[in-house]
Design a protein around this nucleic acid. Structure first.
Length: 953
RNA sequence: GGGCUUUUAGCUCAGUUGGCUAGAGCGCAGCAUUCACAUUGCUGAGGUCAGAGGUUCGAGCCCUCUAAAGCCCACCA
């Protein structure tokens, strides 16, 4: 084993911790030594040759594995702050469970990020003066592959810098062969199960990127726009219409129809005069699409239009006649209550068209130009066409009004282009079965969510889930393994066949030729397999790593990813893909604003790592963060983390110094551990609850106290980790190490040194904080003279043994010390600590700990009070303590003393109020009532003494 | 319109089944300084827990309403 022994090679602890000097060496050593490898084999093993998986035969009581996958960062990009948080969370979990003795497997990944990468690559092509249309699909795929391969190393180096203890050999790229295989297997199964269909549906189409999006990828923004009123002339001449015309009296309704067609209040007088024919007024934000109109809809309950339903209107600027239909979609309250129906270019209209079996007339092409329109409009862009249409309508007197409105418009989430609803043949997954299965498993509580409410939110989402469009018109992705028949003669053969040979553009099956569909899969279709592919799950083999213990990812992709993994996991494996889900929120800037390039408030995690160290970043970003919440982040918290690392370093430097000078006395380094299976989440963890460190002896109450504090801290960390309360775990470690261990225990050890205990307690704390600060703890571990191996694979500490009564005594001593310090500070003048001594009368705590108190308070001397009390009495009940202060100074303290008496008095009043309530005494738990009573008598005694003191002055 | 979340110190956040004299970090003020650490130590100021009612012996926590901020889904002709 490689041991990084700077200590043995003559290197000593420098005055401060410099992360840059250690981090990369340490990471390289971990990696070289296989520290990140799980101990339970990842693939089936059959050493006894009985044809069965030994891992399964051995049985895994509870579960001795811990598996977690990394949400794959974009292979061609840099890590952003969100990745930083992800790694801090996931790696802390991994390292914690590794220390607790589980076979931990953190599986890294890289995402081909279909669309994201494609956008970057297209931009790159543009810069080189090329366009995608110069290349075939396969050429483009090969080019992007090279492009990504060149950049991929970056992201992996950055993950290492963050300390991610993942098994690098198992890195899964979303285009790896096993991923594609698995995706094809699933697709084939779905195809055979009749869950895949090809449908002409409206999809959100980006004219710039020439691809369709899933609903979830569309960004809706509120924009200002216009709502135009256009008059459509009602005609009777059509064949269908004339048959009904008999019952319709045109004379009487001439004016009525017009009046009815317009909201009464908004109807200008002169328009009435200028147009005497029967018209129906529709409102639209997109006049250019009127060529695609196939009907005008009114609400069936709308009395104004009752008689018009079934009649026809003449489509302006054309000769077309289209029917007036009744449909719920028309809202009588909105606009004129009549709406034009353009099924090929509007989602709602599409559905109306479905209901009424209307044709779909496409008038906008994929590149955003007008088609299938009168010649003068043909080939115009939608914007040009709109202008022209409005002008022509106006000339014909058909444009009756324009209203400024605000409405939401679909945009490409990448380039901001307005998306065009476009009629396309796409592959769809019928999600009904997937969703209902997922819902039933979720309702059974098979997956635990953090935060808890997200489970219900997810069920709610799944209930309303629509069919999933899985086709994308970009070359960079997994090809859809479907081939279209091109031999027209083969009439008996199906139009589409499934085939895995997507490396071919054309195949032959049974003498019939087929051509490959050019589309690729939506990335979420393959990502949905992530837990399955990362853990090498197969139909045949037992897999101790599936389901994953936890899925940690961003709350923003709960629907896009988590929902799909659950549906796909259940569909493919029959099991939920993970037992628990932890969702983190967005990392906001220090003012709670979303980070964005345009605001210039983006924080680069690598920059912070370089300046303050990886551990500082991890500690900083975990602080003040809870599940599912978008929370602010600033450099300050990283600085606090950096300071803690330095504190740890100096604590270690101090203790190593003691070990060097006092001699390396014999201390048993092995601490026995028990095992139990009743720990949280049925994990088989090294349990420290039942065992104690047997070899240590505490020699004084400070030592008992710190053993108690550390034990309680370890216990709290265990609870916090089981509940994913990272910030709390860090918090308690921080205060235990700094406020307790360094400020009280180490200070007291300057008097009595228990070398064995110093070593053991330091080891305990280092291991406990290692999951959060892996580098500094390893750097220290390697620098200490009495540690072995890597801290990264050490064993989680056992509880320390202590005498609870003695520990409690130390707590009392701390109160005395604090009171002495506080009073000295409050006295007039400076440098009081060194001026005045402490006097005690019949006080064994102070008498027995004279030297310790002297060290902690810095008072020059502590003496027994012989004779009458003098000086300033300390405001402590149960202690006869005086500061040896001259009369003059005491009298100057009078005001402070009065204030003190008042304060204690207020506390006493509150307590008395409580006791005066008979219901409290009767109904509150006994121990509380007793506590209150004790507190009252203590305060009373204290107040009495303070008053005496005041009288003396 | 449907769903979700937040509101606690100057700032960012904890506060787990109600027991609190409401905590932390940063910031602020004062004091200290060879002897592990100025990336330090000690001390302190700072809060009607958004507001109003209710339940309870007891509410930051539970219930109802109100106000403000934010997010998601649907719709917006």
């Amino acid at each position: 084993m490689i041991k990084l022994v700077w200590y043995n090679s003559g290197m000593t602890f420098a005055k401060s911790y410099e992360p840059g000097e250690f981090e990369s060496d340490i990471y390289a050593a971990w990696e070289a030594d296989g520290v990140f490898e799980p101990t339970v084999p990842k693939y089936p093993v059959d050493n006894d040759g009985d044809g069965k998986d030994d891992r399964e035969e051995e049985g895994l009581p509870g579960r001795s594995t811990y598996s977690i996958v990394m949400p794959p960062p974009n292979a061609n990009g840099d890590l952003h702050i969100g990745h930083g948080l992800t790694v801090a969370l996931e790696d802390s979990l991994t390292r914690y469970y590794r220390l607790r003795g589980l076979s931990s497997w953190y599986i890294p990944g890289a995402d081909h990020a279909g669309f994201e990468t494609w956008v970057v690559y297209e931009r790159f092509l543009e810069k080189q003066g090329h366009t995608r249309f110069e290349f075939s699909r396969d050429e483009l795929y090969a080019r992007v592959w090279d492009f990504v391969a060149e950049q991929r190393g970056n992201m992996e180096l950055q993950l290492r810098a963050l300390g991610a203890s993942c098994a690098w050999d198992d890195l899964t790229f979303t285009l790896d062969e096993n991923v594609v295989d698995r995706v094809y297997t699933t697709f084939e199964k779905m195809w055979n199960d009749g869950m895949i269909y090809r449908g002409e549906k409206l999809v959100n189409f980006c004219p710039k990127h020439q691809t369709a999006f899933a609903d979830i990828e569309v960004e809706h923004k509120d924009e200002k726009g216009s709502l135009w009123d256009i008059a459509y002339e009602v005609v009777e001449e059509s064949e269908e219409a004339s048959s009904r015309a008999a019952s319709f009296s045109p004379v009487a309704t001439g004016e009525n129809a017009l009046t009815l067609a317009l909201p009464r209040s908004e109807m200008p007088e002169k328009k009435l005069a200028s147009d005497s024919s029967n018209t129906i007024i529709v409102s639209t934000t997109r006049p250019e699409t009127l060529f695609g109109d196939v009907a005008v809809a009114v609400n069936p309950k709308d009395k104004r239009y009752k008689d018009l339903v079934g009649k026809f209107v003449k489509l302006p600027l054309t000769d077309k006649l289209i029917p007036i239909i009744a449909d719920e979609h028309a809202d009588p309250e909105y606009g004129t209550g009549a709406v034009k129906i353009t099924p090929a270019h509007d989602f709602d209209d599409f559905e109306v068209g479905e209901r009424h079996s209307l044709p779909r007339v496409q008038v906008i092409s994929e590149d955003g130009k007008m088609i299938n329109v009168p010649e003068k409009y043909e080939g115009l862009t939608t914007t040009e066409c709109r202008k022209k249409v409005l002008k022509d309508l106006k000339e014909q007197g058909l444009l009756l009004g324009e209203k400024k409105i605000e409405h939401s418009v679909a945009h490409c989430y990448k380039c901001g282009t307005v998306l065009e609803p476009m009629l396309k043949e796409q592959w769809f997954v019928d999600v009904e079965k997937l969703a209902t299965t997922a819902i039933s498993h979720l309702e059974k509580g098979e997956i635990k969510f953090y935060p808890e409410n997200k489970g219900r939110v997810l069920i709610n989402y799944l209930r309303g889930l629509k069919d999933w469009n899985i086709s994308r018109q970009i070359p960079w992705g997994i090809a859809i393994p479907m081939f279209r028949k091109i031999d027209e003669a083969a009439t008996d053969e199906p139009d589409w066949v499934f085939d895995r040979r997507t490396h071919l553009t054309e195949i032959e099956k049974g003498g019939v030729r087929y051509v490959r569909d050019e589309d690729t899969f939506d990335t979420w279709f393959s990502s949905a397999h992530w837990p399955i592919v990362c853990t090498n799950w197969t139909e045949e083999n037992f897999n101790p790593y599936y389901p994953l213990n936890v899925m940690e990812t961003g709350a923003d992709i709960l629907f896009a990813w988590v929902a799909r993994m659950i549906m796909m996991g259940l569909y493919v494996t029959g099991e939920v893909p993970f037992k628990e889900v932890y969702l983190h929120g967005l990392v906001l800037d220090e003012h709670g604003q979303k980070m964005s390039k345009s605001k210039g408030n983006v924080i680069n995690p690598m920059d912070l790592v370089a300046r303050f160290g990886s551990d500082a970043f991890r500690l900083g970003i975990l602080r003040g963060r809870s599940a599912g919440m978008n929370q602010a982040f600033s450099e300050n918290s990283v600085i606090a983390g950096r300071n803690l690392c330095n504190k740890l370093w100096n604590i270690s430097r101090f203790i190593q110094g003691i070990v060097d000078s006092e001699g390396d006395s014999e201390v048993s380094s092995s601490v026995s551990r028990g095992e139990s299976d009743d720990s949280p989440a049925a994990l088989r963890l090294y349990s420290s609850e039942t065992s104690e460190s047997p070899s240590l002896t505490t020699l004084n109450m400070g030592e008992d106290w710190i053993c108690r504090e550390i034990s309680e801290c370890i216990e709290a960390v265990e609870h916090d980790m089981a509940e994913y309360r990272f910030a709390e775990a860090v918090e308690i470690l921080y205060s235990t190490i700094w406020d307790k261990y360094a400020d009280w225990f180490l200070e007291s050890q300057k008097l009595f040194k228990n070398v064995g205990l110093l070593k053991e307690t330091l080891k305990t704390l280092l291991i406990a904080i290692h999951p959060f600060a892996p580098f500094v703890t390893e750097a220290i571990w390697q620098n200490l003279s009495w540690t072995e191996g890597f801290i990264a694979t050490a064993k989680w500490p056992a509880r320390l043994k202590y005498d609870p009564i003695s520990a409690e005594e130390f707590e009392k001593l701390m109160v005395v010390v604090s009171e002495v310090r506080g009073t000295l500070q409050a006295l007039p003048g400076t440098g009081n600590a060194k001026k005045y001594g402490l006097l005690y009368d019949n006080d064994s705590l102070v008498r027995d700990n004279e030297f310790l108190i002297k060290i902690l308070t810095k008072v020059p001397e502590i003496n027994s009070l012989n004779g009458a009390p003098r000086g300033l009495r300390l405001a402590l009940a149960n202690h006869e303590l005086y500061l040896d202060v001259p009369e003059k100074v005491v009298s100057e303290y009078k005001d402070a003393l009065t204030e003190r008496i008042m304060a204690v008095g207020r506390e006493l009043d509150a307590l008395n109020m409580r006791m005066m309530n008979p219901n409290y005494v009767e109904k509150a738990p006994e121990h509380l009532v007793k506590e209150t009573r004790d507190a009252i008598s203590e305060k009373e005694a204290l107040i009495e003494r303070l008053k005496q003191q005041l009288e003396l002055i």
